[in-house]
Structure formats: C-alpha cells, structure tokens
Amino acid sequence: MADSDLSLHLLCVFFPIFLLVFLKLIVRPRPVNIPIKSRHVFITGGSRGIGLALARQAAAEGARVTVLARNLEKLEEAKASIRLSTGIDVGIVSADVRDFDAVKKAVESAGPIDVLVCNQGVYASGEIENLEVKEIKGMIDVNLIGSFNVVKAVLPGMKNRIDRKPVSIAFMSSQSGQQVGIYGYSAYAASKFGLRGLAEALQQEVIADDIHVSLIFPPDTDTPGLEEENKRRPPLTSIIAASSPVMRLDEVVKKALNGIKSGSFFVPCSFKGLLLSIETVGTSPQRSYFMAIVEVILTGALRIVAMCLQWSWYDSIKKWHTKRSSKFVA
C-alpha cells in the first residue's frame, strides 16, 4: 500500500474516533436526566391546547401539576377535564403573566417548583403595516416579557429547593416563529426569537444550581387555536407554512416532555424541526455527544438545503405579487 493510501486510510479510521473523544470532552452542559414523578410541574398557559395536554400527560406520569392561566373559569374546566381523563386533581392558579406581582403571588401559593414550563402565548399573523400596535405589543408582552416575569418569580424557590435533584425551566417556542422567520410572522417571530436569547443566557446563569433550560419547537399543531389562527393568516403565510405539515397534539406533547426530562436545550418536535435545529444551532448548548457529531457533519450541507427553501419561499412571494398585480391591471 502506498504511503498516501495508508495515510488516507488512517485518517478515515482515526478521525471519527478523535472527533468523538474531542466532542465528549468539550460538550457542555453534561447529559442529565430530570425526573418528574412525584415532583412539582408548573405550566403557564395550561388551560387549553398544548399546555393542557402537557399538564394531563405530566399528571398521568405521576407529577404534581399546577396550571396557571388568566381565566379562572377555563382553569376550572381544564382541571375537570384532567380529572375526568386521569382521575388526578391538578392545582390551578389565576394570574396574568404580564403582571409580575400577580405571578409572584401565584407562584408562592403553589409552592416550590421542580419543572417550569413557560407555555403561555398569543398569536396574530399579518404584515407589519396591517397589525395594530397593541397587537404587536401584546405578543411581546405575553410571549417574551411574560416569560421573564414567570422565571424571575420561580427562580428563588427553585434555587433554594431542599430536593437537590436536577430541575428544569422550559420555554414553549415555535418552529415557524422562532427557528425561522417567515412572511406574516414578523411580530410573532420577534417575540419568539427573543426566547432563544433568554434561554441561552439563562442556562449559563443557572447551571451551577443544577437547573437545566429547554427550548421547545412545536410546528403547527392540531389544536382549536390553530383553526382560529388560520382564519386570519395572510395567504402567503399559509402557502409558506404549508411546507411543514400539521402535527398531532399527542405527538408534540410526547416530544416536549421527553425533551424536558432529558434536559435537552433544543427540543424539536418534528423531523423538519430537527433539521432546522441542526442548521441554526450556532453557539447553543448541546448535551448529546451524538447530536454534536451530527451538527458538525451536517451543518454546512443543511445550509444549502435552507437556501433552497428560502428560494422556494421568495419564488412564491414573487409569483403571488405578480398574480396580484396582473389582477389590478385587468
């Protein structure tokens, strides 16, 4: 065998091993398991949709669950629904996440929290010129500032917990609003993109207390809320969003809860979401050695895929405006 062939053979054999060892040394934070059985799971926006389904599943897995929302009547309905399906009672507390004092009071009444899921969210699609300023502010205040308020209220008790097992703070983000910004989601995406900055910085702030942060990316999910959203979506938004199929609620909840329990920072809920997570990983934390290798290998190739996707979107936008202009001329 020629020296060059031998060198290439050795490189092919030893480079993957070197890469695995190297990544195992530098991957941070370390892998972790976060138990939820017999622990307190606190879910905001838990009176309907993903939050309600997540509360039901956590209760079924043996967690003590408390649900927070603004509307007390809907909270009572959610509690009755969970009791009917699981035979388990969950706690309910009413507060507006935009009001820090009210959130703090609700958190204190619920007791020490082991797993916090910031699931509250409001949504309104539309071009900036067609959105009311109060709608834009409402999304920022509920989706982003509300998460700051909840985390700030929960952290003191979480840090001073008697049970020193690992605990979690999870943010319910959005595949279509956070992992990639698309037409008609300017305000919504801004509110969700902010969660990533919050999550990345927060993880560094709380890691010494064995608190682990997760960012969950559900795609369009089969909930009653989606039906209402679709009524107002601009046509171009629907065209672009159609590239990602609607996901079943139970599948989203299973992916989300498993991601929280494994302490994963990025928690994609679909295959497309997984590819977007790899393509947009940047400097985000990664606990999995295997996923670290996948990211290193695939990021460049997935950038090409993303550019092709962008091309298709901009082509759709061009065709839409061309068709619209021709109608006006006619």
Rank of each mutant, 00 (worst) to 15 (best):
G91I: 00
I113Y: 10
T223D: 08
D141L: 09
G259D: 04
L23H: 05
D163T: 08
T322K: 15
V151P: 01
K105P: 08
I17T: 11
I239Q: 08
R161N: 14
Q57M: 09
A102N: 01
V32H: 00
L215E: 06
G300Y: 03
K327M: 05
A301C: 13
M291P: 00
V281R: 04
E205F: 01
K323E: 12
I182E: 02
P156L: 12
I278H: 03
A190Y: 12
R161E: 04
I128G: 14
G121W: 05
L25W: 09
A190F: 13
L84P: 05
R303G: 15
I293F: 08
R28Y: 11
F266S: 11
V294S: 13
A187L: 09
D99T: 11
G111W: 09
N130T: 15
L276C: 01
Y185P: 03
V65M: 07
A301W: 08
M158H: 07
S284I: 06
E295Y: 00
T221M: 07
G45H: 00
I36L: 11
G138S: 02
E200W: 06
N230K: 12
V167H: 06
V150K: 04
S288V: 00
A301M: 14
M158N: 06
A199F: 09
E77S: 14
K134I: 02
F15R: 02
F171I: 11
V253G: 00
P285W: 04
S81P: 06
E279P: 05
I216K: 03
A95I: 07
A69E: 01
R83W: 06
I260H: 08
V93Y: 02
P285I: 10
L226Q: 04
I82R: 01
V133F: 06
L257Y: 02
V27N: 10
L52F: 07
L25S: 12
I113M: 05
V67P: 02
S262F: 10
K79I: 01
V13F: 09
I182G: 00
G111A: 07
